[in-house]
């Protein structure tokens, strides 16, 4: 029975569970941006929305048994042995590539996570914090001229018949 539950988890919950949570986080952020009354709360919702998108992007580059995308020279012996085994399997190729075998060992691309989404999202995070700072500056300016951060009170003051 335990095995059945475990296999059910592994087969149907685990492969998609992350995506469900990302969608839930994104919807929490969207709901906060639409309905929250306070400007700071709206900005927190915007940041949550943004992190959900970044999570989706980074998780696209995940491989099941991959390492971090930094080539380590400590495990060089393993790589060389791996390359030699491959070359033993195909002896004709080994003889043709004999000269260049020592210079660079074979890099298995399934051993490393995909670096491209990491690069794109790394810059997106730093740009995200600078735009968050700009938004906070504008909300400080709003507080300076209206005395409040609540959206409905600002709208009351902006209305033609409002108390101002």
């Amino acid at each position: 029975m335990d095995i059945i539950i475990a296999s059910f988890l592994e087969d149907s919950i685990v492969p998609k569970f992350n995506y469900w949570i990302y969608v839930i986080l994104m919807m929490i952020g969207l709901y906060a941006m639409i309905t929250k009354n306070n400007l700071i709360k709206k900005l927190i919702g915007m940041a949550i929305f943004q992190t959900a998108i970044i999570l989706l992007y980074v998780s696209v580059g995940v491989k099941a048994d991959a390492n971090i995308p930094i080539i380590s020279h400590h495990g060089e012996k393993d790589h060389v042995e791996h390359a030699q085994n491959e070359n033993l399997d195909s002896a004709s190729e080994a003889s043709s590539h004999h000269g260049s075998k020592k210079e660079h060992h074979v890099i298995d691309k399934n051993k490393f996570a995909n670096p491209l989404p990491h690069v794109l999202m790394l810059t997106a995070i730093v740009v995200g914090v600078s735009t968050l700072g700009l938004a906070l500056a504008i909300s400080q300016k709003v507080h300076g001229s209206f005395g409040t951060l609540e959206e409905d009170e600002i709208l009351d003051q902006l209305r033609p018949g409002g108390y101002d």
């Binding site: 998609k16 969608v23 580059g61 491989k63 099941a64």
Partner: peptide
Amino acid sequence: ATKDFPNWGDEDSPAN
């Protein structure tokens, strides 16, 4: 739409 996504950690997904 998530059911059309590649599985978590799929090495053969289009992006990877």
